[in-house]
């Protein structure tokens, strides 16, 4: 599908690119002959350009994405310390992972918690911000910048900021709460393994909401105002207009936001690494992979097995999500 869609504009300069994947069947039947005639008219230089433009991205995708993915899967069945040759050990790494590696279950739970928090709280919050800002309220520009600001910061920086806020003895929060004095028991926001994950989620959600807000702002600008007018004429109230008309129309944005939410939840790493190296209540799959593969540990096979688990979770989430979305689109 893709190459063809890319090819056509190059050949038919003026024709509107009918690149929609679901082309009408009769159109599809007529196309091939025309396309064949046109391709023959391509000069050597055109072909060279096409080969380079298509070939290089394909090559990079293959080398940087697929080859490395396959290599990880292969390595996950071996025992390798990074020196010398790898030894095939079957599924031992996976057995070990599920039965004899305490941080693993914690990390999976944290990643799912992260996903749930972003999907159920941060993303809807971003949508709410976008809807409010879209109404052209006073100081809208200011709110927009303020909410978008954290997106510009890297998560590592956010990690440092959260230490300033949540540090036990001299953090802003405990100072404001007035619990830092003599004989008091201030909440250990960062050191207590039952609390720190929530602190990190709030900080990650703060950033994620801004990101989602910008995407939805763009989406809302693209909604045809006549649809809203029509809904109003039919007697729909504001809520009905939004949930029955505006929101479904933004389907392309919804898909992007959904995928981004999943990706953000599963690749989360820098904020916890900046806070305490991803230990003591802040375990994440990405951190376990890093701990095992990078650094002196060099349990490369074992770390690859964790990476494969993460791959399966992300592919599973994204495929399931996209399939439901696309199926709904068709119906």
């Amino acid at each position: 599908m893709r190459p063809k869609a890319d090819l056509e504009p190059a050949v038919t300069a003026g024709a509107p690119a009918a690149a929609a994947p679901a082309a009408a069947p009769d159109q599809g039947r007529r196309r091939p002959r025309a396309a064949r005639r046109r391709i023959r008219r391509l000069t050597t230089r055109d072909r060279l350009v096409i080969t380079v433009l298509l070939g290089l991205p394909l090559l990079f995708t293959f080398v940087l994405v697929w080859a490395t993915t396959l290599a990880s899967i292969g390595l996950s069945f071996t025992n390798w310390d990074g020196i010398g040759s790898a030894k095939f050990i079957g599924i031992d790494n996976y057995k070990e992972l599920f039965t004899n590696y305490p941080p693993f279950a914690t990390a999976i739970w944290h990643n799912l918690l992260w996903l749930g928090f972003l999907a159920l709280i941060a993303t809807p919050l971003g949508l709410l911000f976008a809807v409010l800002l879209d109404r052209k309220i006073r100081f809208g520009r200011f709110y927009q910048s303020a909410l978008y600001l954290p997106v510009v910061l890297s998560l590592a920086v956010i990690g440092f900021i959260s230490q300033l806020i949540f540090a036990r003895d001299d953090g802003i929060l405990n100072t404001v709460l007035g619990t830092t004095g003599q004989g008091q028991h201030p909440v250990d926001w960062i050191g207590d393994p039952h609390i720190n994950i929530w602190v990190v989620l709030v900080m990650a959600g703060w950033r994620h909401a801004g990101y989602v807000m910008v995407l939805y702002l763009a989406g809302l600008k693209g909604v045809d105002p006549s649809l809203k007018e029509a809904a109003a004429i039919d007697g729909a109230n504001a809520r009905q207009t939004f949930f029955r008309v505006v929101f479904p129309v933004m389907r392309p944005v919804n898909i992007i936001v959904g995928v981004i939410t999943v990706i953000e939840a599963l690749r989360a790493f820098d904020i916890v690494y900046a806070i305490n190296g991803g230990t003591n209540g802040l375990e994440l799959l990405s951190v376990l992979i890093t701990d095992n593969i990078i650094g002196e540990a060099s349990r490369i096979g074992f770390g690859s097995a964790i990476a494969v688990v993460l791959l399966l979770i992300s592919v599973g989430c994204i495929v399931a999500y996209c399939m439901t979305e696309l199926r709904e689109e068709k119906s």
Binding site: A167, D188, D192, N276
Partner: peptide, 8 residues
């Protein structure tokens, strides 16, 4: 021990 050692 100092309190909150794991956060220090």
């Amino acid at each position: 021990y100092q309190q909150g050692a794991l956060g220090l």
